[in-house]
Amino acid sequence: MATRHRFSVAGVLHTVSVDDAGDRLVVRIDDRDPIEVDATTEGVPGLFSLVRGGRPSRAYVTRDGKNLRVIVDGRSFVLSPGSGSRERGAAGGLADPPGKITAPLAGVVVDVRVKPGDRIEARQVVVVVEAMKMQNEVQAPHSGTVTAVKVQQGGRAEKGELLVEYTPDATA
């Protein structure tokens, strides 16, 4: 019984189908030839050992929100489900859709520069989040009017946490 997965990696879409043939798996990536894989995660959750044609490889998979993060020999891949329209690594702040501004990284809120009712312009800094002694300015992706500020100075923000809500200006 086959399962199909669509992943976007660095903006490129890949389709992976996995067919469980009992003693082994048959994997097909995009339109390439099928590969026979002996796979196990025995021992450590998320740590995969794959053997393809007598050649072992290793990977560690963990969930990062909706994405999967896979580490193979020093390189980290982010596998996003679906279409691949989003830029790799871009999240929060300028990458947010209109109406909400979220934290691009986890940290301590060291400055809140807007309050409800304030006008904001695109690229205006609304909140400053500090992580590991580095200050990161979170910018508004669009202009609009702030309706709610969800964090306080000195508080902690998680990656992806809602910081500011605003009513975006109608686009001309």
């Binding site: 019984m1 086959a2 399962t3 997965h5 992943f7 990696v9 890949h14 992976v16 189908s17 996995v18 469980d20 009992g22 798996l25 994997v27 990536i29 590969i35 894989v37 796979a39 995660t41 998320g46 995969f48 794959l50 490889s57 290793r58 990977a59 560690y60 998979v61 969930r63 999967l68 896979v70 193979v72 020999d73 390189r75 891949f77 596998l79 489900p81």
Partner: peptide
């Protein structure tokens, strides 16, 4: 070549996360 490994491992992990109560049963 590490991408192929990542895609296979990712697909297997996704199958497990989705709940392999159906897929993988023979």
């Amino acid at each position: 070549p590490r991408l192929e490994t990542a895609l296979i491992a990712g697909a297997l992990a996704a199958s497990l996360i989705a709940g392999s109560s159906e897929s993988g049963l023979t």
